[in-house]
Simulated scan of single mutants.
Amino acid sequence: MSSSQRTVFVTGGAGFIGMHVVPMLLERDYKVRIFDNMFRGDRDKVAELVATGNVELIDQDVRYGGAVQNAMKGCESVIHLAAVSINKSVSDPYESVDINMVGNHNVFAAAADQGVRRLVYASSASVYGDPKKLPMHEDDELAPLTPYCIAKRSGEDLLGFYERTKGLSWVGLRFFNVYGPGQKTTAYYTSVINHFVNRLRQGLPPVIDGKGEQSMDFIHVTDIARSVVAALESEKANVPVNIGTGIDTTVADLAKILINAVGVDVEPTFNPRDVLVSRRAADITRAKEVLGWEPTISVEDGMNELVKLTATT
């Protein structure tokens, strides 16, 4: 296969996850065409990648179907990461539906029309809503709660439509709680990490609502990027796949991990109030079977690295 056939079209490629995926693609001799409106993208980092000669940036928006169709021409495969965040989708459902639903459709329709070899879609564990049991399996009931989650679920359904009607080959990656270097400090899942670390650096104990039993499945962005590349290259396709560690880390456990990472001698304080206790942990059997992927970075190691990095920046 010549390199001209191995150009990957990456929407949202200048964002947090994209900036970890693109270097991995370059290591594997792909060319990359980033399609990003640069609203949150890192222009300096993208400029460095463009300077390699194997990356180009199309500064455009997935809401414009014609722009997507034109920009995708000649691309062998597609990675669709562009989306509006979960918090923003509640405060501005109009923009969320526009970007996450219309944008999804523009990308999927263009990929189906142009006969790309594979489309990898960044879905989300939020499609499950509040899980009835752990670990969460891909065949469990879906009950998305916000416009963001609803759009992620409908994206998977749309991919099924284009698979049936146009033969589109796709993998939908249901990312759990992504964290790691380069993430905006305002990000939904890292706000608790940042809040704890900021207090610990001041020698103050982290404050936990309730008993700290609410949990997340924290998955490092490097492992996320590896799953995207694995999905691009896997022989099996046309299924949603959970991408997490399979371990639910409670907020109380997270506080202990971060206390050790920062190296302060404090105990967390608990704020007694009613908390809707939600727990998350991925069943990652399918990720191993379909993608040959499993996580490599433990929560302890990942959080330690994050604390070290934030200390130097």
Rank of each mutant, 00 (worst) to 15 (best):
residue 164 R to T: 06
residue 306 L to Q: 09
residue 183 Q to S: 12
residue 205 P to T: 13
residue 171 V to E: 01
residue 4 S to I: 11
residue 35 F to N: 11
residue 84 V to E: 11
residue 6 R to P: 02
residue 295 P to R: 02
residue 176 F to S: 05
residue 67 A to G: 07
residue 22 V to S: 01
residue 196 F to G: 05
residue 289 E to F: 01
residue 201 R to I: 04
residue 156 E to L: 08
residue 147 P to C: 14
residue 34 I to Y: 02
residue 144 P to M: 05
residue 185 T to M: 11
residue 34 I to E: 02
residue 157 D to N: 10
residue 128 Y to P: 00
residue 8 V to G: 00
residue 68 V to K: 06
residue 78 V to C: 04
residue 178 V to K: 02
residue 45 K to V: 04
residue 69 Q to M: 10
residue 240 P to S: 09
residue 7 T to K: 11
residue 312 T to I: 09
residue 250 T to G: 10
residue 31 K to H: 11
residue 155 G to W: 01
residue 113 D to C: 08
residue 12 G to I: 04
residue 307 V to F: 10
residue 32 V to D: 11
residue 7 T to N: 02
residue 245 T to P: 00
residue 59 D to G: 04
residue 49 L to K: 03
residue 186 T to F: 00
residue 68 V to P: 12
residue 254 L to P: 01
residue 67 A to K: 12
residue 253 D to Y: 01
residue 276 L to H: 08
residue 77 S to Q: 14
residue 137 H to M: 14
residue 226 R to K: 14
residue 44 D to C: 07
residue 159 L to N: 04
residue 158 L to H: 06
residue 156 E to S: 03
residue 116 V to Q: 04
residue 206 P to G: 10
residue 123 S to H: 08
residue 279 R to H: 09
residue 140 D to Q: 13
residue 217 D to T: 04
residue 42 D to L: 07
residue 78 V to F: 00
residue 94 Y to M: 14
residue 303 M to G: 09
residue 53 G to S: 10
residue 202 Q to P: 06
residue 67 A to I: 00
residue 145 L to F: 03
residue 122 A to R: 00
residue 11 T to I: 08
residue 95 E to K: 12
residue 143 A to L: 05
residue 228 V to S: 01
residue 64 Y to T: 05
residue 284 I to L: 05
residue 208 I to W: 05
residue 227 S to R: 03
residue 312 T to W: 03
